[in-house]
Design a protein around this nucleic acid. Structure first.
Length: 211
DNA sequence: ACCCAGGGTCATA
DNA sequence: TATGACCATGGG
């Protein structure tokens, strides 16, 4: 797999993405939960609401009544579920200071033990809040690389992550930029359905590759 | 009226 | 282990 060559193609096409779009590591974690199966545009509204209502901090989210929290994040969808998940996350963070002392594997296990945090959200947090060299796999990543014929369409999360981390240098800056580029590229070009005919990266957006 | 979006949990077989 | 139901808003 020529993963590094693909990275450079994406970088040349789209440029640096400066992820994660957040002011603090805590905001990264909140955004990672809110964006579960949800358009980022809607998450931005929810985060703006949180900042307007009570400041985006652990204590104020815990102090907020669950109903008020749910109303604030309403635009992000699944608001009842996500309100509970946010408070679970905050309780965990409050009870486990010094998380940054753990190595990446231990930290990953801790994050996965939190109700509402699955593999992708955990890896978002590891990479973008804790700056750990963890490659985030998501639907975009699977779609792009399966369409390129480099992985099976139904490849599991862990096996795909391990493959990427085995081939690439464990560089958090690389992983940060790579995942962001995959997301941007998939939104603009590697769509669920075919789009226009003229695309600078013919191979990377061809719909015919998979179907 | 569909389909999609920077997923995860839970019940069932 | 592997599906399916469920959660819910907003834009194309």
């Amino acid at each position: 797999m020529q993963l590094l060559a693909i990275f450079h193609q994406l970088y040349d096409r789209h440029g640096p993405q400066h992820w994660w779009p957040a002011e603090t590591p805590f905001e990264v974690m909140v955004g990672a939960m809110l964006t579960q199966n949800t358009a980022w545009r809607n998450v931005e509204i929810a985060i703006a609401n949180l900042k307007a209502v009570g400041r985006l901090e652990l204590e104020s989210i815990l102090a907020m009544p669950i109903e008020a929290l749910a109303q604030a994040i309403r635009p992000a969808g699944y608001f009842n579920v996500k309100a509970k998940r946010l408070q679970h996350l905050c309780q965990f963070l409050q009870q486990h200071p010094e998380l940054d002392q753990l190595d990446s594997d231990q930290l990953r296990r801790q994050l996965l033990s939190i109700h509402g945090i699955g593999p992708e959200t955990a890896d978002d947090i590891l990479l973008y809040a804790f700056n750990r060299p963890v490659f985030v796999i998501d639907a975009y990543t699977r779609r792009l690389f399966s369409r390129l014929g480099l992985v099976e369409a139904d490849i599991g999360y862990e096996s795909m992550r391990e493959e990427f981390e085995r081939v690439l240098d464990a560089d958090p800056r690389l992983f940060n930029e790579y995942h962001a580029l995959i997301v941007i590229h998939a939104k603009e070009i590697c769509r669920p359905r075919p789009m226009c005919g003229a695309c600078p990266l013919v191979q990377m957006c061809s719909y015919a590759v998979t179907t």
